[in-house]
Nucleic acid binder design. Structure first.
Length: 474
RNA sequence: GUCCCCAUCGUCUAGUGGCCUAGGACACGGGCCUUUCACGCCUGUAACCGGGGUUCGACUCCCCGUGGGGACGCCA
């Protein structure tokens, strides 16, 4: 079954919600491990829970994987399309005496479970139907017969060998009343059938692993290698959840994050390569290994993710960045079609935005007909003497020859003007900035002015002067 | 309660018995640069959970404790 020793990994989410941060990291590790070893990465949707699985979730998960660039080589496979395989396999187990039908009622079991917990015992199935040799009936489930003696060792690639006493394991249900397999059964059958060589998953599954190994053995399958990755926690060290902020991968896209940033952040959550922080995809594929995955759970730190996002924004080519900002401008009501202009705007903002969303907001002034003036800024920099300064410098720009209307030319005008009037450059720049952008915070004036173009600059200065006069600043 | 896992700066981590006066990164403080805000550069604060062993020598190995996480479903 195994393709001559080739590594095969899989990501197997249940479609009961969006792809979250933790799942994304698991998927990423599986993806990288497969790529690193020139193997195969399979996507499998574990939709055996009829109640909670939805098509929307499946779509959302696929979209998020695609956005992150976690391209799978096969699948998505759906467990609900493979029901026959589980049923047949389960029947074989029953025929071999390794599994049996059970008619214990869920309510009854729940009662016993609670009682055991209350009495301080480990809640385990009591084996009521174990030796009744029941046959298939509509309300019967199938349980796997656990040995109950001996021990099972999980040779985990991250945690090292972990030993479980088999008496800790009870007879788990493998086929439900509704004819669907349970997780522990379906996962074993599929991982075996799909010839998965390395199972990389969250360490919340470590406790399931011994019973899965027992199933592999009962079915005569080869046992894969396991790697249990520690959980991701929130700032309060509790398991990461909605109350810690955004946990959905796509929420980060909406907030203006680059997939490269999220991938880079996620991979460093638990994995390291010396002191290196920034990794290209090619480097990740070249370097990723399970030996360097830590054993301790990691706290999700949005600040560092933000820093990485800023880094990738700075690195991003303007043309590509422009493509990414366009939808965010649109959301702000600016239909930007001029790609050249967009690339220029983005270049102005590139080093001063932490997210694409922030970049869109910080550059909206380029696209308006009338600048939205910030009251405090106007009050401070478009008054008395300042307004005369703006007006005067505006005339200078107007008289600037087209070939001198460059960043250098503009800066020269600014500097000479400051020297001539005995002002600080700052006192010349700020009024202009407010006139052109409406606020005191913007990219450098020479950039703003060249991007905006001479005509608009002159127009905006005039309008600003008029505005200031109108609101009685003079 | 039982079982399993884990434990280095606030956070992510380097460290595999002497290289450690414990390194890097984020965040934070100070400084430089500067036409605003940023970027960048320099710099500072900050950690080996506790106790026993083992060893000439423990952040590194062992045990116990403590703390945190996970599992105990006809969820995955």
């Amino acid at each position: 079954m195994s393709e001559n020793g080739r590594i095969i990994t899989r990501f197997a989410p249940s479609p009961t919600g969006f792809l979250h941060i933790g799942g994304a990291r698991t998927a990423l590790f599986n993806f990288l491990y497969a790529r690193r070893h020139d193997g195969k990465f399979i996507l499998r949707i574990e939709d055996t829970d009829q109640l909670r699985s939805t098509d929307e979730s499946t779509k959302a998960i696929l979209d998020a994987m695609t956005w992150l660039g976690l391209n799978w080589d096969a699948g998505p496979f759906f467990q609900t399309q493979r029901l026959e395989i589980y049923r047949e396999t389960a029947k074989k187990l029953v025929a071999a005496g390794k599994a049996y039908y059970c008619v214990c009622q869920p309510e009854e079991l729940e009662k016993k479970r609670k009682q055991a917990l209350a009495e301080g015992r480990k809640p385990k199935y009591d084996g009521a139907c174990r030796d009744k040799s029941l046959t298939a009936t509509p309300d019967a489930v199938i349980r796997f017969r656990c040995p109950g003696i001996g021990a099972t060792v999980v040779g985990d690639m991250i945690k090292g060998p972990v030993t479980f006493n088999n008496e800790e394991l009870d007879d788990l249900v493998i086929m439900r009343q509704d004819g669907h397999p349970t997780y522990n059964f379906a996962v074993v059958v599929d991982d075996a059938e799909m010839a998965i060589t390395d199972v990389i998953r969250g360490d919340d599954h470590l406790n399931n692993t011994p019973r899965q190994i027992l199933l592999y053995e009962a079915l005569g399958y080869a046992v894969p290698r396991f790697a249990h990755v520690p959980m991701i926690l929130g700032a309060d060290k509790a398991r990461l959840s909605k109350r810690h902020g955004a946990t959905s991968v796509m929420a980060y896209q909406e907030m203006g994050y680059l997939p490269e940033a999220l991938v880079n952040y996620l991979v460093r959550l638990g994995w390291s390569h010396g002191d290196q922080e920034i990794f290209s995809l090619a480097e990740l594929i070249a370097f990723f290994d399970l030996e360097s995955v830590g054993k301790a759970p990691a706290v999700f730190n949005p600040e560092k993710l933000l820093w990485l996002n800023q880094h990738y924004i700075k690195e991003c080519p303007p043309e590509k960045l422009a493509e990414l900002v366009i939808p965010f401008w649109k959301e702000l009501g600016h239909e930007v079609t001029d790609r050249r202009l967009a690339a220029q705007v983005v270049t102005d903002l590139r080093e001063r935005a932490k997210t694409i969303k922030e970049m869109a907001a910080g550059s909206a002034f380029y696209f308006v007909n009338d600048v939205a003036f910030d009251e405090a800024a106007v009050k401070k920099f478009l008054n008395g003497d300042h307004i005369a300064t703006a007006e005067a410098s505006g005339l200078l720009f107007a008289s600037l020859a087209e070939e001198n209307y460059t960043k250098e030319g503009i800066e020269n005008v600014l500097r000479e003007f400051a020297v001539r009037t005995g002002k600080k450059l700052k006192d010349v720049a700020q009024p202009l900035r407010v006139a052109l952008t409406g606020t005191t915070v913007s990219p450098p004036l020479d950039s703003v002015m060249t991007t905006l173009g001479k005509q608009k600059v002159i127009e905006r200065i005039q309008k600003a002067v008029e505005y200031a006069k109108r609101v009685g600043q003079v």
